[in-house]
Structure formats: C-alpha cells, structure tokens
C-alpha cells in the first residue's frame, strides 16, 4: 500500500510522461483512455493509475501462485515420464498419492517398538532435535558470551572450534555410540555437536559487534558485571543468538535424518531407510515431502522468533 501511495504523488510530475508512453507501445487500448482525459482535466489520469496498480497486484499474485505451481507441474510431469519410460519400478505420482493417503490416515498407530505410525516417527526425530538443540543452547550461548567478552577465552577456544566446525556432525556418531552405548543419547549427541558451533560463533560475533557507545553508557552508569550482561550485552546480542539458533536448527533437521538412518530403531530417518529396505519407494517420496514440510515449519518458527526479538525490526 505504501509503495502505491508514493507512486500516486509521482504521477503529476515529470515522470508520468514516459510511463504513459511505455504503456502506449505495449497496450494500445490503454492509450485512448489515457490521452482523452489528459487533454480535458488534469485530475483524470488517477483512474488509469489505479488500473495499473490493480493490474500490477494481479500480476504479482499470478506470479507468486502460478509460477511455483508450474514448477510442481513440471516435476510431476518429469516424474511420470521416468515412471513410464525410464524406470517402471519407480512409482507413478498417483500411486504415491494413494499410498500417502493410507499412511497419513493413521499416523499414530503403535503396534510395538518396530511398527509405529509416521507421526510417532516424526515425534521421536523432533524430540531428539529438541534435546540436542536445547543442550547446545545451554552450553553454546554462555560459551559464546565468554568468547565475545574475553580475548583470552577467544584465543583459547578459537583454534579448536575452527578445526571442528567443518567436520560433518555424523563423524561424531561412533564416538557417541562408544560413550553412551545407546542409540538415543548418541543421536542427541550428534545434534548437540551440530547445533553448538553456529550458536557459539554467532553469540560471540554478536557480543563483539556491540557498539562502543553502549559500553560507554554502561561505563558511565557503572553497571556491574551481572547488570552489564543482563541490561546491555544480552539484549544487544539477542538477534545474533537467535540467528545462530535458526541456522543450527536448520542443519540439525538435516542431520537427524542421516543419523537415524545409521542408528536404526525409530525416527523418520530410520523409517525412510526401513521403507527402502522394503523397496517401498512411495514411502520414501512421502518422507522426503514430510521432512521438507517440517523443515519449513521449524524455520518459520525461528523466523518468527527472530522478528519478535530483533529490536531493530520492532
């Protein structure tokens, strides 16, 4: 709305002329309505502008709706083509759809530890991510603060973090299994490792990015260490912390699928792998869709939190 209001004020000025000319060449029908009122009353071009605004709105709507739909259509067409001409064992989109309806009809059935609905599988995966993510926040955020506030801590930890950060978190799975001798804590451990680096690094960056002005205010007010953290460092750093959390949650959701494929037991990653062992390709396609959907929801949640907590956006 705001952008349109600005355009309205621009129209009577010099810029309106080339605009109308542009429309002339593209859509001759518009020129007639534009040319006639221009000679009689100068106030008349406004309806034309509203027309243009409406057309722009419709165009944007079509673009944001139609283009993605078009992409999906192309994917489904390619999928059908593969099913018919390349690999007949690959299920048709319609088969997958029917299969998905079956599975999603009863997501929370539970007939023993080796046979649970897809809803339960998701819950277990989400639970592990939540636990690993939460533990990483408990450890990583204070560590990030310590690194940001103290050059000594920074110098002590930085090389270690630089070495460990590029390592795939899955490389830690054997160590987790060795340490905990159980699947669940090992998967949580892997998620913990996944989440901790972005949290530590972003928090430390945030603390170091605090403007000197804020520190001067704190100095003049003689805020103590605790007050300094609570009143200045923490709120100033919060947007960075949440960005780190958002990053790490995104990666964690990717990693948990792979980790569960390796650990077995229960979880959406395990379920996907199990279905592959049963040559149930429809399930795999469904799982891919669901994992993507949950990933979007998680990211939207973090994005919402980010907007809520970022004082620069309030």
């Amino acid at each position: 709305m705001h952008a349109h209001a600005i355009k309205l004020t621009v129209v009577p000025g010099g810029k309106s002329a080339p605009d109308t000319e542009e429309t002339t060449t593209m859509e001759p029908t518009i020129t007639q309505t534009a040319a006639a009122p221009a000679s009689t009353a100068p106030a008349r071009p406004i309806p034309l502008l509203q027309d243009r605004i409406r057309r722009e709105q419709v165009a944007t709507l079509l673009k944001t709706l139609l283009l993605p739909l078009l992409t999906f259509a192309v994917v489904i067409a390619a999928w059908s083509y593969i099913h018919i001409h390349v690999a007949p064992e690959f299920p048709a989109p319609s088969e997958t759809w029917e299969h998905a309806k079956d599975i999603l009809a009863d997501p929370f059935y539970d007939t023993g530890p080796n046979d649970m609905g897809i809803g339960w599988q998701l819950m277990y995966s989400l639970g592990r991510v939540a636990a690993g993510f939460g533990l990483a926040a408990l450890v990583g955020i204070p560590l990030g603060f310590a690194m940001g506030m103290s050059r000594g801590v920074q110098m002590a930890l930085s090389p270690l973090i630089q070495i460990l950060k590029p390592v795939s978190p899955l490389a830690w799975l054997p160590i987790g299994l060795l340490l905990f001798k159980a699947v669940d804590p090992s998967a949580i451990f892997v998620i913990f490792i996944t989440c901790i680096w972005p949290m530590v690094i972003n928090t430390a960056t945030g603390v170091k990015a605090i403007p000197q002005d804020y520190m001067n205010v704190a100095a003049v007010l003689k805020l103590g260490k605790v007050e300094l953290i609570r009143r200045i460092l923490f709120p100033a750093t919060l947007p960075y912390v949440v960005t780190g959390m958002r990053l790490s949650l995104g990666i964690a959701w990717m990693v948990i699928v792979a980790a569960e494929m390796l650990t077995g037991g229960i979880g959406i990653g395990f379920w996907l792998w199990d279905e592959w062992n049963n040559l149930n390709v429809s399930s795999i396609i469904l799982a891919i869709g669901i994992i993507g959907g949950v990933g979007i929801v998680l990211d939207l949640m973090m994005g919402w939190a980010q907007n809520r907590l970022d004082y620069s956006k309030r």
Binding site: Y214, V217, P235
Partner: peptide
Amino acid sequence: VFQNHSLLPW
C-alpha cells in the same frame, strides 16, 4: 551526552 545519542534501542 554522546554525539550519536547512544540510547539502547531495545
């Protein structure tokens, strides 16, 4: 009183 006000934005 600092030149760039240095109010805490939150």
